[in-house]
Design a protein around this nucleic acid. Structure first.
Lengths: 249, 249
DNA sequence: TATAGTTGTCTATATCAATAGACAAATTTA
DNA sequence: TAAATTTGTCTATTGATATAGACAACTATA
């Protein structure tokens, strides 16, 4: 069959500039395999006609993607696709960062960016089954794969029960390993709520994104096998680099 | 705790206009309950200061949301929140449209927009375990809740096995009921892949969105309890009206 | 080695986006 | 009723976005 082209689906005076819309389309086309890796993109004039815009507008889109490391333009030759398809991040009953990306990347790790103790907000307290205002430890982390940021997360743990988990996290670089030090050798994903929005300034900096990018947001609760909530988390994934694969919970 | 404000997280020359970013923020604030229903928003000058932009820019954002039916502005009084929180659309082993939104809406139904027979594309064939090019039936549907579009989906079925499912769908308005006519009284969600992107022109029309909106996209395969694939689907959800709640598969 | 095809750069122009200030119109409050 | 608060409208200016055309620089190929 002929997959429906989106040639005509450009929106003017939308609050999203044409070059950004076209950059999104090119990213999407790469992600679904329309433009294979290392292959040349259609020439700028062809893209301009395809999307119904001026060649210069296409050039703006391309230059943003070159900046972003997705494309490489060579004068006289063409413009080439650098990045591979999006990582497929699995979400299931036993969602673990490192194991989930095995096979798709040669290297991955979690960096602890910051940690603090704070009173639980309404939603954190609800998620962890604590009283609002109870002390919780917050860990700010970033997941990286092959040197590129693929996730940015905040995790909350009951302070009394998990005192020192920040140090464990800094040392081991793994949530799973850190929880093991507190006698938790298995945990399950109890609930996940998913949404999407434009990246804000913090996301741009944390995930090395270009302005206008979209982030997927998950809010989740992890529990022990017998149902005790141990971790409440909010994670952000760059939609252009990551898709979420929901597996059996 | 003090939830971190995103007052400073406005990006200039991003390809996404400031008024669109602020409209997104207001939607987000409503969604997480920062501005309760029927309550007045902070006055325009306060919002302008909060987000670090000119009052006129805030007005552009508000007028887009008024257009969208989210806010109502009254001269001399203030600007008020009309719409409730986002619908929470459950995704799990037995994802069903109607049952999933029970309790959140008073009314919901699926409209069959179009149907056709076509040769299977690569990904459809893979999903259904057919040869590429085999005949499949495509059903284009829209899900509506309380009169507002909440999803837009394309579903593919093997044509030989499910001949006439389009008529059944038109008649019953339910995928579950239609499949029942073919002897399938239970089916499971085998896989779901999730991504997000800017809405294209088709999404805008189908889902009654304003330009610049974000859509969540799921690509899923449904199977019979013994593992036979029966349906391949791609669904789009307006991120501003719907969040996805991942439950046990 | 021409020639065609492609990306890079420049100038010019029109429209959209954002800021700024002033004041009108409507509502609430003192 | 008067004052304060809030949304609505208008004018003006600046910078970003998009279009248009011309030509330079580089590469591959006939």
């Amino acid at each position: 069959m002929i997959e429906r082209h989106e040639a005509d689906s450009i929106e003017r005076r939308s609050g999203v500039s044409l070059w950004r819309q076209i950059a999104d389309k090119i990213l999407h086309a790469i992600a679904i395999g329309d433009f294979t890796e290392n292959a040349a993109l259609p020439p700028e004039v062809a893209l301009a006609e395809r999307y119904g815009v001026n060649r210069h507008t296409v050039r703006s889109a391309i230059s943003a993607l070159v900046q972003e490391g997705v494309l490489r333009a060579e004068q006289g030759r063409g413009t080439f696709v650098l990045s591979r398809k999006r990582l497929s991040y699995p979400i299931g009953a036993r969602t673990r960062f490192s194991t989930g990306l095995q096979g798709q990347t040669t290297e991955r790790h979690i960096v602890l960016l910051a940690s603090s103790v704070e009173p639980a907000s309404q939603r954190v307290a609800e998620g962890l089954g604590l009283a609002k205002g109870a002390d919780v430890i917050r860990l700010e982390t970033r997941g990286e794969a092959d040197g590129r940021p693929v996730s940015r997360a905040a995790g909350w743990f009951e302070a009394r029960r998990f005192a020192g988990i920040d140090a464990a996290m800094a040392e081991t670089g793994s949530i799973t390993a850190s929880l093991a030090r507190f006698g938790i050798d298995d945990y399950l994903r109890q609930s996940t709520v998913l949404s999407a929005r434009h990246a804000d300034a913090a996301d741009l900096a944390d995930l090395d994104l270009q302005p206008g990018a979209i982030v997927l947001v998950t809010v989740a609760v992890n529990v022990t096998p017998d149902g005790q909530p141990i971790q409440f988390s909010e994670s952000r994934f760059p939609a252009e680099r990551v898709e979420l694969k929901l597996s059996a919970l």
